[in-house]
């Protein structure tokens, strides 16, 4: 999959005869981020920037920032942003969508934001089939606040609030919320991708692009869950965290398109993933 980015400055390079293969899109603001080394948020921000550039979206995008590590996303993506209270991004986006029919409406949330405090909001935005593209970053932890357990934390996983490992008896089971949402007829597209390696990142970009096109084409609610890593929160090196992502995390959260009701031959909804709590 060739990575390319249209760049207006390429013409000036004609004399150099070298050919630009990749340059970061302008909509990805040129500054160092606050994310920890190796954090998947950076990759996801970049993919969003590339897809939005490819689909010519920045000029009419109104995006909703979450509360969590990605609360500063408005410092990195050069589009109009509103900051939502923790968990409320889908409701904030609903308000935007309803009064600005022509806008491209995007939400970006972490797992605590979407699958814990914001569960009602994401469920009802999906149930209403709001024409919104939701990016849901699942790194199984509350990163910004120091590495606490999230609804998507794996069983047995140690966090600062499950110090001896997540115990289902006391702390319940990991939530596969995207599968839950996919049951709702209002959801036109639901998929789960990963930043685990170059191949996964390529496939993730296709999913994000699809989720944006669904909105452009007037479809209903679109969501892409992204399995992402949290080296610091997981207590691993960046590379180890990606191995972990490919391993037990991907096992608990199967990758792929869960439902795509937009395609003419509607892809059959994902086999109701046997929610095996002991994943």
């Amino acid at each position: 999959m060739t990575l390319h980015a249209r760049s207006s400055s390429v013409e000036t390079q004609r004399a150099a005869a070298a050919r630009l293969v990749y340059r970061k899109p302008d909509v990805l603001i040129d500054r160092a981020t606050h994310y920890c080394p190796g954090c998947g948020h950076g990759v996801i921000h970049r993919l969003l920037a590339e897809v939005m550039t490819d689909l010519d979206l920045p000029a009419h995008t109104i995006a909703v920032a979450p509360v969590g590590c990605a609360v500063f996303i408005y410092d990195y993506l050069d589009v109009d942003f509103v900051e939502a209270p923790h968990g409320r991004a889908p409701a904030v986006a609903t308000g935007i969508r309803r009064v600005r029919p022509e806008a491209f409406v995007l939400t970006y949330q972490g797992d605590g934001d979407l699958a814990a405090i914001g569960t009602a909001e994401i469920v009802h935005a999906a149930a209403r089939g709001e024409r919104i593209t939701a990016i849901f970053v699942n790194n199984g932890i509350y990163g910004m606040t120091g590495g606490q357990m999230a609804p998507t934390t794996l069983l047995g996983q140690r966090t600062t609030s499950s110090p001896s490992g997540r115990d289902a008896e006391l702390m319940g089971y990991p939530i596969r919320i995207t599968e839950m949402l996919a049951q709702l007829p209002g959801v036109t597209y639901a998929a789960r991708g990963s930043v685990a390696d170059a191949g996964s990142i390529g496939r993730l970009k296709v999913m994000i692009r699809r989720a944006c096109q669904v909105q452009i084409e007037g479809g209903g609610f679109a969501i892409v869950e992204v399995l992402s890593n949290c080296p610091v929160g997981w207590g691993m090196t960046p590379q180890e965290s990606l191995e972990h992502l490919k391993g037990s995390v991907a096992e608990a959260y199967p990758l792929g398109v869960i439902v795509d009701r937009s395609a003419p031959s509607t892809a059959r909804p994902a086999a109701a993933a046997a929610t095996n709590p002991e994943a």
Binding site: V82, A91, G95, A120, H124
Partner: peptide, 21 residues
Amino acid sequence: VFVQAESELGAINMALGAAAT
């Protein structure tokens, strides 16, 4: 626009979004 939200939490946050535009 009229939306009956999932809760008052939903309603006030929808308002926040709409008003921000």
